[in-house]
């Protein structure tokens, strides 16, 4: 009983661990794609072109960070793109009655939060499976957009509203990319450096074990649905500002691209595993592939084959490798 042995804190240094991680592999892939692109097209290494390319992923990635936390906690939100549609519709309707830019931003964020709260209540309050709940709210939120707009569109956003999606902070550095970076840092801090982040991992790894350890599991998940809704609101502001109009089909199908981005970033769809740097790199990979293929005049749909195959391959290849080694 008294013979206390000294157990080392760690066997491998954090640096060594991160070098062997999924994120570093993905980083190499990103660099590879970057190099390949710059050889393939003379237009690739142009500051303005590269800056334009970031719009491919910044809005999706803002949601992907919150979605990453939600998936790590063991839930999912398929209604994010529908929240964009609803928030954008609400802003568009407000424009018609003369609401100015600060009011529009408030409306966009509030609708996002409200939608997130509805999802969160249905999942944590009533104990329903999030995948079904958010398939339902996905139809509901976008459906409301369709009721309001039908085949019409809202236009006439105030000129200063265009800054969020079209403005540049300095030279080629757009407002969106700055916002993207800021949000990435905030989520990285939340997930990797706070007690809340630890609770997210614990909940996703073993929800019963987390509950039995005194974690307020329901509250953690509710907050994550709120955050995902809020980020959808932020993305709605940027996207609406960039497009300058709102149609009910805005951001159609984004939910699956966002989930793909999160999974590609090394987040386990079963929960408990993943990191924000991984999602950041995945966002760049998807953006670079889209941009590079676009420069080569390869249509976007072919890009989707690459992304779909990548999604399966990133999980399948390590498993095939370990199966091959054990046999």
């Amino acid at each position: 009983m008294t013979t206390s042995r000294n157990i080392p804190d760690r066997l491998r240094s954090p640096l060594e661990q991160s070098l062997k991680s999924w994120e570093s592999l993905l980083f190499l892939v990103a660099i590879g794609i970057f190099i390949a692109n710059s050889f393939a097209s003379p237009y690739f290494l142009n500051a303005w072109n590269l800056s334009d390319a970031t719009f491919n992923f910044t809005e999706k990635a803002m949601i992907a960070f919150a979605m990453a936390l939600l998936i790590i906690s063991g839930e999912i939100d398929l209604s994010v793109a529908a929240i964009i549609a609803l928030a954008s519709t609400a802003m568009g309707a407000a424009v018609q009655v003369g609401v100015g830019t600060p009011g529009l931003v408030m409306i966009g964020l509030s609708v996002g939060l409200l939608c997130g709260a509805v999802n969160g209540y249905l999942v944590t309050g009533l104990g329903l499976p999030s995948i079904v709940v958010t398939i339902g709210t996905m139809s509901l939120y976008r459906g409301i957009s369709f009721i309001v707009l039908g085949d019409q569109a809202f236009r006439g956003y105030p000129p200063d509203f265009a800054f969020f999606g079209q403005g540049y902070v300095w030279w080629v550095v757009s407002f969106e990319i700055v916002l993207f970076a800021l949000i990435a840092v905030i989520y990285a801090i939340i997930l990797h450096m706070t007690n809340f982040g630890r609770a997210v991992y614990a909940t996703g790894n073993n929800v019963t074990g987390a509950l039995f350890s005194g974690i307020r599991v329901g509250r953690v998940k509710f907050i994550l649905f709120l955050l995902t809704g809020l980020m959808s609101g932020v993305a709605a502001i940027c996207l609406t500002s960039r497009l300058g109009s709102t149609r009910p089909s805005i951001a159609l199908g984004w939910e699956l691209e966002i989930v793909t981005m999160v999974v590609l970033g090394g987040v386990s769809i079963l929960g408990g595993l993943g990191s924000i740097p991984g999602v950041v790199i995945a966002a760049f990979v998807m953006g670079l592939v889209t941009f590079g293929l676009g420069l080569l005049n390869v249509p976007g749909i072919v890009m989707s084959i690459v992304i779909g195959a990548l999604l399966i391959a990133v999980i399948a290849l390590p498993r095939l490798w370990s199966m091959w080694r054990t046999h």
């Binding site: 007690n195 809340f196 609770a199 991992y201 614990a202 074990g209 974690i215 408990g272």
Partner: peptide, 29 residues
């Protein structure tokens, strides 16, 4: 395995899980 320990988390994180408020400062680990 189901209720007690969180298997995929390291030992130290399991031990500190209910005591994080004491090991952290302003919510930061």
């Amino acid at each position: 395995s189901k209720q007690g320990a969180i298997g995929a988390l390291p030992i130290f994180q399991n031990v500190t899980l209910p005591s994080l408020s004491r090991t952290s400062r302003n919510g930061f680990i």
